[in-house]
């Protein structure tokens, strides 16, 4: 009944820095999750389309191009339009501290900055999805 957590790892925007996205994708897969990696240069529309088709629990977006303040809110907006408010949106990349608060205000639950550990990311995704699925979480 309880299917594995399904995560779409996406590289949105025009930059090709995919090292982080791939390492995270692999760590999530090794942790037992089902991972769909989109490849680079995805538009917000493509990312949301993939997430909808895959019935994803979470979407992790990696962005190192500086376009985060446009692309992340756009992805959340498209997700809302398609009734995907229950899907977790998180991200990472070269994102200045000042922008993290802005992104959190626009539906990005968590932004992992450089130096984050894989363990931290895996634990976070597991916990945040469990919470959304309503699986009992320690009080």
């Amino acid at each position: 009944m309880k299917r594995p957590i399904r995560v779409v790892v996406a590289k949105a925007g025009l930059d090709g820095h995919d090292r982080g996205a791939k390492v995270v994708a692999r760590a999530l897969r090794d942790a037992g999750m089902e991972v769909i990696y989109t490849g680079v240069h995805q538009t917000p529309e493509q990312v949301v389309e993939t997430a909808a088709q895959e019935d994803a629990d979470a979407v992790g977006v990696s962005l190192l191009s500086g376009a985060h303040n446009f692309i992340f809110p756009r992805i959340r907006e498209l997700m809302t339009e398609r009734g995907m408010d229950d899907v977790l949106l998180f991200g990472g990349g070269i994102i200045p501290e000042d922008d993290v608060a802005f992104l959190r205000g626009h539906g990005v639950e968590r932004v992992f900055q450089p130096g984050s550990s894989l363990e931290e990311i895996v634990t976070y995704v597991r916990g945040a999805v469990a919470e959304r699925r309503g699986t009992p979480v320690a009080p």
Binding site: H41, S65, G66, A67
Partner: peptide
């Protein structure tokens, strides 16, 4: 910037948010 590197103009829809950034 990324649009130029990817061969896209400043007004290309995929360039939104990327012009002059990187």
């Amino acid at each position: 910037d990324m649009p130029a590197l990817m061969g896209r103009d400043a007004d290309d829809p995929l360039s939104r948010g990327e012009v002059g950034r990187e």
